[in-house]
């Protein structure tokens, strides 16, 4: 039973399948372990949920099915959770897409719409009638004369930072603001955000720690 280890944890039983062993050996040992446990638990009526850990082995669908089928054979035993310490490349790429800041240096021309899943640091040129859309925040350092759309479609916490003097319109989540230079002064440290009244509002970067503490901490951690 070397390739399978049973441990008692605060929240229940944890079974670790040794990733360096052959998976078939894992299954044989797991079957033997469950057999033993079922004999010991025969008199108990309560259900036991096990937390399975597969270490650095990422199970495929067939392997996962074999494990679930095995547990189905033992009445009262079930799998509460099945986890590996690794993730597949597609999942990592998807997470990366959302979490990292994308640096965009391109020219977005009239009629073009560029969308991102993550935060965007925009260093390029956004021409009139062009649209820069992001699910996250937008940090503007380039020339912007087109529409900026942060937190699309429903991220109310998103912000737009930078000089938006020449931007005709900004959108955050489901709110829209037509920029009127006469009524508002913009600078590099302008922050556009949705306030507590769900109205698109403007502030300055030095208040970011109180306006969006989570984002502020995240940015500090990244520095």
């Amino acid at each position: 039973m070397d390739s399978v280890i049973l441990k008692g944890r605060k929240n229940g039983y944890e079974i670790t399948l040794n990733a360096s062993a052959n998976f078939d050996d894992n299954m044989v040992d797991l079957n033997r372990l469950l057999e033993k446990l079922s004999e010991a638990e025969q008199e108990s009526d309560s259900d036991l949920g096990f937390y399975l850990k597969t270490g650095s082995r990422l199970l495929n669908d067939a392997q996962m099915k074999r494990i679930y089928d095995l547990f189905d054979k033992y009445k009262g035993f079930s799998i509460a959770d099945l986890q590996a310490d690794v993730a597949d490349l597609a999942a990592i790429a998807a997470a990366e897409k959302v979490n990292h800041i994308h640096v965009e240096m391109a020219t977005i021309r009239s009629g073009q719409e560029v969308s991102y899943e993550s935060d965007v640091l925009f260093l390029g040129n956004l021409h009139p009638n062009g649209v820069l859309k992001s699910r996250g925040n937008i940090f503007v350092m380039g020339d912007c004369s087109g529409i900026l759309c942060a937190g699309f479609p429903d991220n109310e916490d998103a912000i737009i930072v930078g000089d938006i003097s020449n931007v005709p319109q900004i959108r955050i989540s489901d709110t829209v603001e037509i920029i009127n230079k006469k009524n508002q002064q913009f600078s590099k440290s302008t922050v556009a955000l949705i306030n507590d009244l769900h109205v698109l509002d403007f502030d300055t970067l030095d208040h970011l720690s109180s306006l969006r503490p989570k984002l502020y901490r995240k940015m500090e951690d990244n520095l």
Binding site: R109, S110, G111, Q112, H127, P128, N129
Partner: peptide, 12 residues
């Protein structure tokens, strides 16, 4: 100029 910008975008 705006229309030319649109066209250049498509051409690119």
């Amino acid at each position: 100029v705006s229309d030319a910008d649109r066209v250049v975008g498509i051409l690119e």
